[in-house]
Amino acid sequence: MRDSILILGAGGFIGRHLTHALLDAGHAVLAATGHAEASLHPSVQMLNLASLDDFKAALARVRTVIHTASSSTPGSSSGQPLKELQNLAPTLTLLEALHQEPSVRLIYISSGGTLYTNHDRAPATEKARIWPRSYHGAGKIAAESFIEAWCSQQASSATVIRPSNVYGPGQALRVGFGVIPNGFAKLKRDEAMEIWGDGSATRDYLYIDDFVDLCQRILREPATPGFEIVNASSGVGTSLNQLLRHMELVAGAPLKRVYHERRSLDAEHVVIDAAHAERRFGWKAATPLPQGLEQTWNWLKPRLP
């Protein structure tokens, strides 16, 4: 069982896709999730990681931890920075447990969309200035810093992946988070979608299968001591108005819109450079936005009330 992979947040959107992809690739998977209703593959062993001792016992059985868990969104902790402690506490507990297992590799799913902003319109590389506009983003930076410190102290191996806006089949509807599933839901119900700003804000959208492919490529590389940041993105900027137009074409129906004044926590332009991932792991996003949206709509449509 020492060859097992532990996935934190296995019941979430990214965690579920990673779990099934790793099982298909022949890996043994241990899973922890805060989603009480989560039902994963029968061969996945579910763990309850409620204490430091729970983490220590789990780490003694694995060679890699993939940390996808997050209990907040940029909107859910707006004006409430204390909420981010719910994200940081499990991460710090994990790192304390890892002091007993320094050979265990850590892959942490951070955020590119909440950390970067393109003031000069140039795609952001891993060396670009990070610019959190939300407490959620600030929490991600804090977690990255703690992970880097752990790496330095233990000569351990950690890879931080900063994805752009990951979307695709299986993404649940969450109020204020996930413009694509929420937009499709509004469209099917013939409801108006609220938009903050004039719709010109640019984002980078990455299809879930492409993101999982990068994670698997990273896992196939031997773990080496050190801390590394890897961007994951399509590298293509799409304005919100363009995105909604693509969604209308896919669904074959118009989407009503109500525009509001732009919020301070929203960046105007976030496009991310993933050239390092291509050089380092031979990875490049392969799914065009219209194709990814069509596959997402085909999955989501029959599940919407």
Rank of each mutant, 00 (worst) to 15 (best):
V166D: 06
A185Y: 12
G178N: 00
G170R: 14
A185E: 08
G170T: 05
E191M: 12
F177Y: 11
D198E: 12
K186S: 13
W196S: 15
K186N: 15
G168K: 10
S200G: 13
Y167A: 03
E194L: 11
F177R: 06
P163I: 02
R162F: 12
M193I: 04
V179H: 02
G176W: 02
P169A: 06
R162C: 08
F184I: 00
G168H: 07
R174E: 15
A192W: 06
M193W: 03
V179W: 08
I180K: 03
V166H: 06
R174I: 13
Y167N: 01
A172D: 10
G170H: 15
G168E: 07
P181G: 01
N165S: 07
F177I: 02
S200T: 15
G183Y: 07
K186Y: 11
G170I: 07
F184N: 00
D198N: 13
E191Y: 04
R174C: 09
V179D: 04
A172I: 14
G178V: 01
Q171A: 12
S164G: 10
M193K: 02
G176S: 05
I180L: 02
R189A: 13
V175H: 14
W196A: 12
Q171V: 05
R189Y: 10
K186C: 14
A185H: 13
D198P: 09
G183C: 06
D190A: 11
D198R: 10
D190F: 14
K186A: 15
A172G: 07
A201K: 03
A172M: 11
Q171K: 13
N165E: 10
P181F: 06
G183A: 15
R189E: 10
A201D: 11
S200E: 10
D198H: 06
G183V: 06
Y167K: 00
V175G: 15
G176I: 02
Y167G: 01
R174S: 09
G197V: 00
A201P: 01
R174Y: 11
E191N: 03
S200D: 06
A185M: 06
G168N: 12
D190H: 15
P169I: 04
G176N: 02
A192T: 05
S200V: 10
L173K: 11
